[in-house]
Design a protein around this nucleic acid. Structure first.
Length: 426
RNA sequence: GGUGAGGUGGGUGAGUGGCUGAAACCAACGGUUUGCUAAACCGUCGUACCUUGAAAAGGGUACCGAGGGUUCGAAUCCCUCCCUCACCGCCA
């Protein structure tokens, strides 16, 4: 959620930013509506506070009069108070109404993109931030896509996933199950080595939590929901992990806060269909190790670079060709100010597959979840939050299968061998 | 799931209708003292919003788990919900 005082002070910058994020006309017009409501809100607040003050003062006097036996004055004042209270009640209702509509609008505005964010509408317009400079691997014509390799090497079983749960659920077995475990351990160990504290978090979260990281209200349809207990299945570890610091006021010395967590991720993917959902490209449940940072605003972009380095390191160790995209305004997520996507080249599918997304949300999430710190001047200030996948398992498995297929089986990257146990998956 | 107890500021904890936004202690922060550390002493020490002010600093309102209610006045009384703890039941 954007900060109202930023809206007040930097209206034109906000409008410009919203345009760069391809906001709709109605979203753009919200800015002025919000500002108008803000003026109304303030004057109502002033009026109401004055009214409440009168009641408070009178109440004290009534107490005095009662003590000193001046019941006449007291009774008279009680009538005045009753009258004032009625007026206050009306003011309060109006105020609540205005506050709610202001918040309703504010919540619909996406974050303002960083100045580095390229203009554009779709994924076509993303900027290649870091190209893969070595030649892309060329596989023999006999190379197979991962869904074929999966059954050949008994990595996972789509039919069993369907049998047990439904389409979009994968059952890994044998090699695949072991590969999952190896990758999770590898990713967690790497994150720990980079200074991230490991978190093992709940997979079901309450409304407040889902709201704080922005899943509610806008992405409600994307989450699985358990009606009986009013809980949501997490779509990413970002949700429970970042929420550790909901409603927290940090000290400057607490920065940087670096967290990592492995969780399964659940996504309904309502409305997704087509060729690209084949195999592991898009599933309802996948596994991911997430890295989360909470940073001082002055250092958050340096932190973002560190996160890029971390993900780079993982992909290099997995011996996968990758490139980094800087997402354009239209392709970025609602809450992000700057996002880099990592894509791994699938030689078999002959296309780049997204395996990680690393973003700085600046104060957008922090504002919603009231994640603040005391700055040098002793004032409370919103912190910056960042997160990134490091990495998403399903697509990495696909990439490993496809890129490392050989006559001897699937070559296991050297860094992963001590986790997996053998040099080849056969 | 059942029964009982309880939810107050960063922590412990006082507070049963007006003098309480909240004692005291601890922690934290700033300072004095000190060769250093420690101790001691002094001071500061919740959040949000509105408002006066260039600022420094003031004034006001709300918040004692959440939401309602009683009352001129509620942390304090009443109702509902949530949560925590203990015991029992069930159970990986």
């Amino acid at each position: 959620m954007l900060e109202i005082n930023v809206l007040r002070k930097e209206r034109t910058r906000i409008i410009d930013g919203l345009q760069r994020k391809n906001a709709t006309e109605s979203q753009l017009s919200m800015v002025d509506s919000i500002l108008e409501l803000d003026i109304q809100r303030k004057s109502l607040q002033t009026e109401l506070d004055a009214g409440l003050n009168k009641v408070n003062l009178l109440s004290k006097e009534i107490g005095q009069w009662m003590k000193s036996g001046k019941s006449g004055e007291a009774e008279e004042a009680k009538k005045t108070v009753a009258l004032l209270k009625e007026q206050n009640k009306i003011l309060e209702e109006q105020l609540t109404l205005i506050q709610n509509s202001q918040e309703d609008l504010l919540i619909q505005l996406p974050n303002i993109p960083h100045s580095l964010v390229p203009k554009g509408r779709t994924s076509e317009d993303n900027e290649v931030f870091q190209e893969w400079t070595e030649p892309l691997p060329s596989l023999p014509l006999s190379a197979k896509p991962h869904w074929e390799l999966a059954s050949e090497y008994e990595v996972f079983d789509m039919e069993l996933g369907v049998k047990i749960s439904g389409s979009g659920f994968i059952l890994y077995r044998k090699n695949g199950a072991r590969l999952q475990r190896a990758l999770i351990n590898f990713f967690l160990d790497e994150a720990a080595a980079a200074g991230y504290e490991e978190i093992w978090a709940p997979l079901l979260v309450n409304k407040e939590t889902a709201y704080a990281t922005g899943q509610l209200p806008d992405k409600e349809g994307q989450m699985y929901y358990t009606e009986k207990d009013d809980l949501y299945l997490i779509p990413t570890a970002e949700v429970p992990v970042t929420n550790i610091y909901r409603d927290v006021i940090l000290k400057e010395t607490d920065f940087p806060i670096c967290l990592t967590g492995y969780t399964p991720c659940f996504r309904r993917e309502a409305g997704s269909y087509g060729a690209h959902v084949k195999g592991l490209n898009r599933v309802h449940q996948f596994d991911k190790v997430e890295i989360v940072r909470i940073e001082h605003p002055d250092h958050s972009y340096k932190a973002l670079d560190k996160m890029l380095d971390h993900v780079r390191g993982l992909l290099l160790k997995l011996e996968l060709p990758y490139r980094i995209l800087r997402l354009c305004g239209g392709d970025m997520s609602f809450a992000s100010a700057l996002t880099y996507d990592f894509e791994v080249y699938s030689a078999a599918q002959k296309r780049w597959l997204e395996v990680s997304s690393v973003s700085n949300f600046e104060t957008f999430q922090a504002n919603r979840m009231k994640l603040r710190f005391k700055n040098k001047d002793g004032q409370t200030q919103l912190a910056h939050t960042l997160n990134g996948s490091a990495l998403a398992l399903a697509r990495i498995v696909a990439a490993i299968l496809e890129n490392h297929q050989s006559e001897n089986g699937i070559h296991i990257p050297i860094a992963l061998q001590k986790y997996f146990g053998t040099e080849y998956l056969k």
